[in-house]
Design a binder for these strands. Structure first.
Lengths: 342, 342
DNA sequence: TTGTATGCGTTATCAT
DNA sequence: ATGATAACGCATACAA
């Protein structure tokens, strides 16, 4: 038995419309009436039925957040998601919205537009996206239909999607410049798959830093993993050989997980980071602080990225900016720790 | 301009009610009519308006998941949340529900019932809860009002809340028995705050294992941290002294974060795990595999816990069980790794 | 097997 | 400043 506006209206001796006006702070209301309504609502413990509100307003009040399919989650830092989600969550609630969490299904053809057509969400934020045809098509559809959405940490070449990203080219450049600064010259790069713009950005930063310093970019120094710890671990055999052979004196890995996997594999061969070679990871994940020696890495403002993405969708003050600038890059910070002391 | 049932009905030459019946698979329908309706719906690209459905059904179709306040998140393993959330997410979507993510606010008086009164959620799952008065009151209110909810990884003494937990007493017992098995006799226990049932359960397991083996439980061997890495790190000074003094030969920590913090602090003193002392953590977090030496730990089935919690709320087959058994404890697995070899 | 009719609890428009 | 009332798009009880 739920209490509706009607009881409040009766008790306050006003019409239902007036109750709504008071509760929604809309239109002119005599102060005395307002008080009477508020007291009546208080007295009967009235709370509006959100389902009726959503229906009448034709808005769900939900921001959808689309996450990668579960097993894929582990290719990302879990820190990554918990931070971005927190940033989004804090912001949407500040604007009176709720957060609907949506896991991509493995099988189903990507159809993000259905979320809007069914009115499940008013806007959405896409995490862990990749530049592959089906994903691009699903996003293009959203764009065409005019549904508001924002990508986080993934950009699409020649597509004008609203995006919040970090400046990974700059961050990678800093990391590599640091390695060069401590005297390293044969710097290998352990990258992730190219369908993540993250990977391409890091590669761009890597190359730029080498060239600035008159070093050649050599394809045989570039390795590709899949951002998992295991993929880093598996490359340790080959990279270890080349470190011992003097062909490699440092490794820049595109994320901490691969860096740590590599570090573990190399340690098994007796090849220690910070001594035989320098190592830099990427993400400033929890784990990077827990290894020994502590992993040098690049800190990404995940919380702020989530916050900004939500603001771009919800904050009226961001709306103009949004038209002018589809892509927003947040600054990044390099952290020198023990794996790249010398 | 959104397409409603009406157009479909007109096109198919049936009433709106019949369209609903076909789409919801309710009541007897002539096969030919069904086909006609489905084709019409297909043709005009009809999708039901979820907001209208929710309103008419008086159900939101949402399962709320309540998370700890953001800064507190870091006291838990992020792995913890990503796993539990995945388990919940997979399950609710299997039952046709959506997942509404709710971050506890720091300031606001705990009022979970409002989620139900406003009809925002049909049921909810509470994560990262603690046994403190305000939390207990908020949950008791849900119970009294008959709102369905399930706690995960936290039990309340003498309160019959529906709960899914892991058998932390058993897990801790195994861990400590293992330490005893490798010859340790002066086993310190680094626990978390008592308002988490997790802490009390681990303590119970610790004590039981000691007593079974004729060892005294000594209060001066029990330390309390707050589940953060830092709290473990800070205790390294004192514990280190006692290890060197021969008063402690092993530490069982209530989670990996504290274990790793302690391990780092001790390492700075030149006290190495697996040699001067044995160490066991708890959670089987990502980080536990990334330390060196690798951390012995206890594996918790977080994914299954999330899954089971959701099933208890949604699966009709679990409904009877639910009445009989308020608390469900999942089994746990001890993992011997390098920090407790000898 | 299908159609008719009512209700769901708001918002918002149009009067007054 | 306030009241009356039409939508909103669907589910469902009741008729036929």
């Amino acid at each position: 038995m739920t209490i509706s506006r009607k009881e409040v209206a009766r008790l306050a001796g006003v019409s239902e419309a007036t109750v709504s006006r008071v509760l929604n702070n809309v239109g002119p209301i005599k102060e005395e009436t307002r008080q009477r309504v508020l007291r009546a609502a208080e007295q009967v413990g009235y709370v509006p039925n959100v389902l009726a509100q959503q229906f009448a307003r034709k808005r769900s009040g939900n921001i959808g957040v689309i996450l990668p399919f579960v097993p894929k989650v582990h290719l990302f830092s879990t820190y990554y998601f918990s931070e971005i989600l927190s940033g989004i969550g804090e912001t949407v609630s500040r604007f009176g919205y709720d957060l609907l969490l949506i896991f991509r299904q493995p099988d189903d053809a990507k159809d993000y537009a259905i979320l809007f057509r069914t009115h499940k969400v008013d806007a959405c934020i896409v995490l862990g996206s990749r530049d592959v045809p089906e994903e691009r098509a699903a996003l293009a559809e959203l764009q065409t239909e005019g549904y508001p959405f924002c990508l986080v940490n993934q950009r699409f070449e020649s597509a004008e999607f609203l995006t919040v990203d970090a400046d990974h080219a700059a961050g990678s450049g800093e990391a590599v410049r640091h390695l060069i600064g401590i005297g390293r010259r044969r710097i290998a790069f352990l990258n992730g798959p190219p369908e993540y713009s993250n990977s391409m950005d890091r590669y761009a930063g890597y190359k730029a830093a080498l060239r600035e310093n008159g070093l050649d970019v050599r394809e045989d120094l570039v390795y590709i993993g899949n951002y998992s710890r295991k993929s880093g671990y598996l490359l340790a055999e080959e990279i270890g050989k080349r470190i011992r052979g003097g062909e490699i004196d440092a490794v820049f890995a595109a994320n901490d997980r691969m860096a740590i996997g590599l570090m573990q594999g190399l340690k098994e061969q007796g090849v220690e980071p910070g001594k035989a070679y320098s190592l830099v990871g990427y993400d400033d994940s929890d784990a990077s602080r827990m290894t020994s020696p502590a992993l040098s890495t690049v800190s990404v403002p995940f919380y702020e990225m989530g916050k900004l993405a939500a603001e771009k969708l919800l904050d009226p003050e961001q709306q103009d900016d949004r038209k002018q600038r589809h892509e927003h890059l947040l600054p990044i910070r390099f952290l020198a720790r023990e794996t790249s002391l010398i």
